[in-house]
Simulated assay, not measured.
Amino acid sequence: MGRARREELRRRYLSLGLGELAAAAVFLTIALLIVLPKIDNRHDRLALWSALIPLLVVLAQAGVYWLLARSWVERHPMPPLIRTVYRTLRFMNVALLVGGACGVIVWCPHELGTGIAVVSVWLFGAIEYVNYFLIRLSYPPRLWLTTVSQLRTPRLVRDLNASS
């Protein structure tokens, strides 16, 4: 049973890791190829980057975490070096999100549609941070309302705590 469970988790972690990295790539590609070419105002561009960079960083960290976790899942705790890196990133992400919010405010987009898009991107980055470092928010849609209220600890945090 242990080997089958480990292989099942390794497959799931591979899917989650590649999915998060793909999401980051999609957000970046859409920004570079579709959104930014349509934005002429320098402040609007800076506001978008202020919102987008924290999102991309959190998604990339999440993707790398899932891929790395495949090596220790159901075997041993998170290795000390990876634990140290992710504990540091946990706090650096807060600074990045705060900095991003400041950038969005300072370079407040002139167009309403751009403003809504920029704030939405920043909020998505903040939600992803919460999902990975504070409270698990991702569940299947039919179970979301009943499960999210349980305030479960994210897998990344459980790995950080288990390896202490």
Rank of each mutant, 00 (worst) to 15 (best):
A24N: 04
V26I: 15
V26M: 05
L28G: 09
L28C: 10
L28W: 14
L28S: 11
L28Y: 12
L28M: 12
I30H: 02
L32F: 08
L33C: 12
L36E: 03
K38L: 14
D40I: 08
N41S: 14
R45D: 06
L46K: 07
L48G: 07
L48D: 02
P54G: 05
P54V: 05
V58W: 00
Q61A: 07
Y65L: 05
L67R: 07
L68D: 04
A69Y: 04
S71N: 13
V73I: 15
V73G: 00
R75Q: 15
M78A: 12
P79S: 10
V85K: 02
Y86Q: 12
R87I: 02
R90V: 02
R90C: 12
F91Y: 13
F91M: 04
N93D: 10
V94S: 02
L97Q: 13
A101R: 01
V106E: 11
W107L: 04
C108D: 11
C108Y: 15
P109M: 05
P109R: 05
H110S: 11
H110Y: 13
G115E: 02
A117Q: 08
V119R: 03
S120N: 06
V121E: 05
V121K: 01
L123H: 00
F124S: 08
I127L: 10
E128K: 01
N131V: 01
Y132R: 03
L137W: 03
S138Q: 13
P140K: 09
R142H: 14
W144G: 04
L145A: 15
L145D: 09
L145Y: 13
T147S: 11
V148E: 02
S149F: 08
Q150N: 11
Q150H: 12
Q150D: 13
L151Y: 14
R152Y: 09
